[in-house]
């Protein structure tokens, strides 16, 4: 199981799954604390009309046009949400719900009405991605990890996600203080000179980039789950922001590894010859971890209750 076949078939999807999960979970921590967790959901939904539009314009399914289309759609969605919020005077959650369902529906309609049936864009692919297909043809075993020729044939999603994750870590590290202060107390942050609106927009853009990069490899199910589940579970483990972010990385990693392994090998343990969707299983594991944290997490009690009695 851990030999050449593992390196060729399972290692790349697992690593890609981990990179995608962490890249989404990291900004998810701040989105959750800003009560903007839905924005990850919104962005990953509008990616569909974005890539369909990119296909209609360019006529190819190459990665870059798709990703640019998705990124443009994400920014359009963020702007639309802001407009609906201001003009409609509705709460942010309602504005996000309205915009992303509408755009996702538009994406499905686009897909149905346009001649994309001949190429590999479909709703299922958009939702679940194609994690199992991201195999490393030229790998002959663990030693291939040291072979530059073989490394060059790694799935391109891997390097894209690695760069995305690295950029995310740099962004969060450089603006850690600013993000923390403006998330806790936006008015105070504004008064001491932090550009809270710009920072909030930067966080959403970083989220969109992570969503688009991860979407291509793993589909929107994982993206949506990872923005919310690991940070929410991590919040129940600790009362410190730095520790919360650490826990979210651990939970995202466990979800990706355990989810992939269970999807690939789990059904066999129950006598079924078929594997189940890795993306679905990874998201399910993330949900189970959140459930366990709700039941057993040390900080699951709402602290404001104890404050009320004091």
């Amino acid at each position: 199981m851990m030999g050449a076949e593992f390196v060729q078939l399972s290692l790349p999807p697992i690593v890609i799954g981990i990179l995608a999960a962490i890249a989404c979970a990291l900004p998810g921590n701040f989105l959750l604390l800003r009560r903007q967790a839905l924005i990850g959901d919104a962005i990953s939904h509008v990616v569909l009309p974005g890539i369909v539009a990119a296909f209609l314009v360019t006529g190819t399914i190459a990665a870059w046009p798709m990703m640019i289309g998705a990124a443009v759609a994400a920014i359009v969605a963020v702007v639309l949400i802001e407009i609906v919020k201001r003009l409609g005077r509705v709460e942010p959650g309602a504005a996000m719900g309205l915009v992303f369902t509408t755009l996702f529906a538009a994406g499905v309609l686009f897909l149905e009405r346009s001649d994309t049936s001949s190429v590999h864009i479909d709703v299922e692919h958009a939702l679940l991605g194609n994690l199992e297909s991201l195999i490393w043809f030229d790998a002959e075993g663990w030693h291939s990890l040291l072979d530059p020729v073989a490394l060059a044939t790694l799935p391109p999603q891997l390097s894209r996600l690695a760069i995305t994750l690295a950029a995310m870590i740099v962004f969060l590290t450089l603006f850690w203080k600013e993000l923390k202060i403006s998330t806790f107390d936006a008015a105070f942050a504004g008064a001491i000179g932090i550009h809270t609106r710009l920072l909030g927009f930067a966080l959403v853009v970083a989220t969109a980039i992570a969503a688009v990069a991860a979407f291509d490899a793993v589909g929107s199910i994982i993206v949506i789950a990872m923005f919310v589940c690991p940070p929410a579970a991590a919040r129940l483990m600790t009362n410190r922001l730095d520790h919360q972010v650490g826990w979210s990385v651990i939970f995202a990693t466990i979800s990706a590894i355990l989810g992939y392994v269970l999807a690939g090998y789990g059904p066999g343990w129950f006598g079924s010859p078929y594997a189940v969707s890795a993306a679905g299983m990874i998201a399910t594991i993330a949900g189970i971890i959140l459930g366990l944290a709700c039941l057993f997490g040390p900080q699951r009690k709402r602290t404001s209750q104890s404050a009320a009695g004091a």
Binding site: F184, D185, F188, I192, R235, N239, R240, L241, R302, S304
Partner: peptide, 22 residues
Amino acid sequence: YVPQRASVDWDFPARVIDVVLM
């Protein structure tokens, strides 16, 4: 500037010292 106490979410994961350090 000290904003209204009720304007922030006191469930935020921070200790007392973290807030003062801000």
